[in-house]
Design a protein around this nucleic acid. Sequence first.
DNA 1: ACCTTATTTGAAACCAGATGCTATAACTCA
DNA 2: TGAGTTATAGCATCTGGTTTCAAATAAGGT
Lengths: 163, 163
Amino acid sequence: MTTAPQVAALSFDDIDDAVNALRARGLRLSIARRMVLELLFKEIDPVSAEHVAQTLGIDVASVYRNLEMLERHGLVHHVHLGHGPGLYVLVGRGEHEYLYCDRCATVTPLEPERLDPIRDQLRASFGYEVRFTHFPLVGLCRDCAGEDRPAAVDPHSSHSHGH
Amino acid sequence: MTTAPQVAALSFDDIDDAVNALRARGLRLSIARRMVLELLFKEIDPVSAEHVAQTLGIDVASVYRNLEMLERHGLVHHVHLGHGPGLYVLVGRGEHEYLYCDRCATVTPLEPERLDPIRDQLRASFGYEVRFTHFPLVGLCRDCAGEDRPAAVDPHSSHSHGH
DNA sequence: ACCTTATTTGAAACCAGATGCTATAACTCA
DNA sequence: TGAGTTATAGCATCTGGTTTCAAATAAGGT
């Protein structure tokens, strides 16, 4: 008993794979939707809806609708790192969980397996099946923990995304 | 080595104590500010700025400024449970960390000590000093984990705050 | 009491995200 | 391939949450 079944562990090798999954669910595939999907397949790090809209020249509203819809169908989910907009990422392929430093706003993506021991312990203690995909683990990184007091910074952006 | 020093573990027995701490830092104490503090001392659960403003009949802008300021000075912090407004709570006195169920939106406050083993493990593995005071631990509660798939619900409010 | 400076207020700006509407584009079936 | 059906894109507009601005007020020091 190391890890519970990764709920809805959909995984798509490529766009067509994902597209088929959508089609199988009776969903249409508009140009815009395909573009969003393609972009998500390209990006490694989570991206904001705004970013998607900008880079693709699509209306943000449409982007939000698409992302939300893809999320409902389990292809995508969003994470909140610090404050600022939610960031979207494909599930399954290259999925990560995140460590976020309160102080320097550094984001450290982790392979989910690395947190399995934590999950096990939480399951054992509280019966909870936790994921750090929606909210990151928040605290002080090694460097910041060493220094002075932990004045909560949150620079509202400039996530120095150190991957 | 069970727990790292609780960073900035300020703790105030009563309002006057907190007020003195503020005065000592050269801050004024307006009626509004005192009222906000008093309300926070009364509340057990985290409250929204809106709630504070409503119950006290103070402008939300002032409430936000006060809360933000009290937060800067380490008397208060805020937590995000699901989506919806940030919720503010006094630091130190009766401080909790939170478990949040993705599915049924149940919030379970925990005594921080109960998560110390988790903290220890995360410190050992990643050098991170984590707290679950800003973002809760998110996952499926025992009940929901048993059932079907984990359709992310987030009823956008109605936190059935079971304390 | 007086002066200086922080703080309150109310309005307005702001951002992330959601929603209603109409034209259009996807899929269905003939 | 073309017509019909229905989802989706675009755009404008709204909302909730939070911040900012200018002017009026009130704290604390002297």
